[in-house]
């Protein structure tokens, strides 16, 4: 039993910060950079677009009338180029091998770890391990796995303070039932999540990516769902195809 305690001890101590930033595609290229800390050069075309676009407008309205046709042509072209430059960083995000956004941890609140008490030891260990590695290996900040109505919750959640573990467990259970997540039949991925009117208010503030993976049972019976796995991140587009494949592999463990 000594080995299982080792896993549990590590899971409690390690925070998601221990995840290193070497998570993206392995690219052996030299990247042009100004090296200014806190300045993302991929947004440079956007700032130039805004700047030069406004200068064009300024130039247009400050010029003495009449404005020649050839200048109008230049300005039309310039403004379209400005619009295109502004759009470039957005387009660049979807190219293969583009830099992934980093997650930011919420300033307030603490990490929670809640697990149903009435489940077997081996399932408990698997759940504790799976939630831990999802936090470590993806840019997840909040993870919830539900297997046949039993829960394992870990990470930063928008949950009330000053609750005992048992109360918190019941609170999560109630919330999850309200949303009806146990009914989800196919994977849901929101790479640009921006809040929702529904009971998804349990997600931490600033959640920008949300991925829900149902645990579809291995039986011939179609659409028999054993539970679900939910991960959320404060980074937009946090889950690449590869990440989703690995999250799916984690979910396989609990399909039943």
């Amino acid at each position: 039993a000594q080995r299982s305690t080792r896993i549990f001890a590590r899971t409690e101590n390690d925070s998601p910060q221990s995840k290193t930033s070497d998570q993206q595609l392995n690219l052996s290229v030299l990247r042009f950079t100004f090296g200014i800390p806190g300045f993302d050069e991929s947004y440079l075309p956007r700032w130039i677009g805004y700047g030069f676009g406004s200068l064009l407008l300024l130039n247009h309205f400050s010029a003495s009338a009449p404005i020649s046709e050839s200048q109008m042509r230049s300005e039309a072209l310039g403004l379209s180029l400005a619009a295109f430059s502004i759009a470039l960083p957005y387009i660049g995000k979807f190219l293969k091998g583009s830099v992934v956004e980093q997650r930011s941890l919420p300033e307030e609140g603490e990490q929670v770890f809640v697990i149903s008490s009435n489940i077997g030891d081996s399932l408990k260990e698997d759940l504790a391990w799976a939630t831990y590695v999802l936090l470590r290996n993806t840019s997840t900040i909040a993870v919830l796995i539900s297997v046949q109505g039993e829960l394992c919750v870990r990470g930063y959640w928008n949950c009330p303070d000053q609750m005992s573990k048992a109360q918190l467990h019941d609170w999560f259970k109630k919330k999850v039932d309200e949303i009806g997540l146990a009914d989800v039949k196919e994977t849901l991925y929101f790479p640009q999540y921006a809040g929702s009117a529904l009971s998804l208010d349990i997600l931490p503030d600033g959640t920008r990516s949300l991925f829900v993976q149902p645990l579809v049972q291995n039986t011939n019976e179609p659409q028999k769902v054993n539970g679900f796995l939910l991960v959320a991140s404060t980074a937009g587009y946090a889950y690449s195809d590869k990440d989703r494949a690995w999250i799916g592999a984690m979910a396989e463990k609990f399909r039943g």
Partner: peptide, 17 residues
């Protein structure tokens, strides 16, 4: 302590991607 999940699960009406 809290295994009163005999009721049918609610249908999911949350956002769809």
């Amino acid at each position: 302590s809290s295994s009163s999940t005999s009721q049918k699960p609610k249908t999911y009406e949350g956002p769809k991607p």
